[in-house]
Design a binder for these strands. Structure first.
Lengths: 158, 158
DNA sequence: TATTGTTATACTCTATAACTATA
DNA sequence: TATAGTTATAGAGTATAACAATA
């Protein structure tokens, strides 16, 4: 890419547009992979989080991922129906339920993760690894800094 | 923010999740501003592009912004109904129509743009300007590099 | 009285395809 | 036969509020 590529585009300097445009291309490619594993990208994110965490409640899960509880209920319903997760009453608070991945759920999450990472590598093949890491570092700085305490946003594509 | 903030989060290293999370927080704040001007964030993006360009056809507009034609038709219908744009037959190709902003459309686009930029500055107050510029540069490298020729994606939040 | 989670409703958005008009 | 744009329809996703159970 030429260093000035895209500079004539009306939103070439607009952070929000760039985030959504790059996220849309990467996200739709990864969503396609997730669908081949019987999940959407959102189902994948939720399942993988559950598989990697130790029995967190639904509200805690929603806070971590920026999803509100009604959206999360629908996603968990599908994952549970597919036998990928279980919901158990939380020990110590009978209002809450904690989610656990089943053995099959962990297997699906792991296989999907491998393919989804490969998809990212393929799409980012032209970018220097150092730039990719820097991009992640800068985004993390926002996501876990000033943006960390934002209320859940459902229409967030994930 | 501590340098290791968020590193225990299951998706702290996932580029796609970070893009969507940061985009959701920034995007929903800017969408709220756009709504106060009678637009959504997508209507704002389309209107501003039209206001800054010289009579481009609808398909060209869609290609620039990554929107497909059916989505764009609906957005343009609302902008035209609100008196912010006009659609004229394209000179030289009577199938096509070119879009132009009205005086009111340019005024609304300009005022909304000011407030939307201020919103970004407020949310990014903690980030060094150099880092913000680097973030935009890296995203642009993808958006106008390997991602440039991706087909329109409607479910892209913008 | 507040919190966890579910359900119901209406609303918006999207995808697909069919369609008109023109090239 | 291909392209620019519109319309129709069905499906998915979302937001809001109300609700049950528990704290």
């Amino acid at each position: 890419m030429r260093p000035d590529e895209g500079l004539d585009h009306p939103f070439a300097g607009d952070l929000n547009w760039l985030l959504h445009r790059v996220g849309a291309v990467l996200g739709s490619a990864q969503d396609e992979v997730a669908r081949r594993h019987g999940l959407g990208i959102r189902g994948y994110v939720v399942l993988r989080t559950i598989a990697q965490s130790e029995g967190s409640s639904q509200l805690a899960l929603g806070r971590d991922l920026g999803l509100d509880k009604t959206t999360l209920t629908a996603v968990l319903d599908r994952l549970e129906e597919a036998g990928l997760i279980l919901r158990r009453p939380a020990p110590g608070d009978r209002r809450a339920r904690v989610c656990e991945a089943t053995a099959e759920g962990r297997e699906v999450a792991g296989k999907a993760a491998e393919e989804i990472e490969a998809t990212e590598q393929r799409l980012l093949a032209e970018m220097r690894p150092r730039d990719r890491d820097e991009l992640v570092r800068l985004l993390r700085q926002l996501a876990f800094g000033p943006f960390a305490d934002t209320a859940p946003i459902s229409g967030s594509c994930i």
